[in-house]
């Protein structure tokens, strides 16, 4: 086994692999420095991680892995809204009894319910809640908060969608697929409302509706709406091809790219989803 040739080959496929991922670079550098014996022992882990990062894709196959991935996202969302509701900087916007506060409280309650549900399903296999989530400057302004909320909700929709096939392939025990779909559509309802709330306060979002037009981020991180990996399975939200049909021109009626992109949400692989989450929060 020529370990270093594999790494070199990976870098040919993705030249930025090591530069992009600092901690991976450390691991790879470490491999080069250590004795051959230790390097080989560590190789499967390092290669596995580096390969997943380099190639993106869904790396989950077991039901529990999917549920723990979902649980991590729900921990994040729950904590995000809990922090928002308690943030002094948002108090003037999220006043007691206001429509805005009620909506955020409703969403927070759903995320808490999702955490409870997923933890219950996983039992002792549930991942621990991270010690803390640091959302940086997310709560500095009301507009910033809503921008983060939009990013998390739209990402959440893509994340659940990206795991449906995995749950099916894994045998769909206890109809876990349906439960995931039932969470998925609630996240989409949240997304629609948050996007609508944001219109009123953020000029960048002034013309957006509850649905995603093309891959327009309107101030949210572009990665939320861009392609995942592989892009053929996880295209950007601007995708206009479904089931090999160009929906703009091959449906008997002509539709615009914007209309077609709005009509279909796109899925995202778990690796890309977690990268987005970690770009918005430290945990």
């Amino acid at each position: 086994m020529n370990l270093f040739k594999i790494i070199a080959d990976l870098e040919k496929v993705d030249p930025e692999m090591t530069a992009r991922l600092t901690h991976r670079r450390s691991a790879l550098t470490l491999l080069g420095d250590l004795s051959k014996k230790f390097a080989l022992a560590a190789a499967p882990i390092a290669i596995g991680s580096a390969f997943n990062k380099a190639m993106g894709q869904n790396t989950l196959s077991a039901v529990n892995d999917v549920l723990n991935f979902a649980l991590t996202l729900e921990y994040l969302e729950e904590d995000f809204y809990a922090q928002a509701l308690a943030a002094p900087t948002l108090a003037a916007n999220l006043t007691t009894g206001s429509a805005a506060r009620n909506a955020i409280q409703t969403i927070k309650n759903h995320e808490t319910a999702h955490v409870t549900l997923l933890k219950g399903a996983l039992g002792t296999a549930a991942v621990a809640r991270p010690a803390s989530f640091n959302f940086g400057t997310a709560f500095a302004t009301y507009a910033s908060f809503l921008t983060f909320a939009q990013a998390f909700e739209d990402t959440g929709v893509r994340a659940y969608k990206g795991q449906a096939g995995t749950l099916k392939t894994a045998g769909n025990p206890n109809n876990v697929l349906q439960t995931a779909l039932q969470i998925h559509s609630v996240e989409a309802r949240h997304a629609a409302h948050v996007r609508y709330m944001r219109r009123a306060v953020d000029p960048l979002a002034a013309s957006q509706y509850g649905w995603v037009t093309n891959a327009e981020a309107n101030g949210a991180p572009a990665a939320v709406y861009n392609a995942g990996n592989p892009a053929t399975t996880f295209p950007a939200e601007s995708n206009f091809t479904q089931a090999a049909l160009d929906l703009r021109t091959q449906l008997g009626t002509t539709y615009t790219a914007a209309e077609v992109s709005e009509a279909f949400d796109e899925a995202l692989d778990n690796t890309t989803v977690l990268a987005i989450a970690r770009s918005a929060a430290t945990f």
């Binding site: 449906a164 998925h184 989409a188 629609a192 009509a263 279909f264 949400d265 796109e266």
Partner: peptide
Amino acid sequence: GKIVSVEA
């Protein structure tokens, strides 16, 4: 899945 979230 791509359609149901749009309906939601």
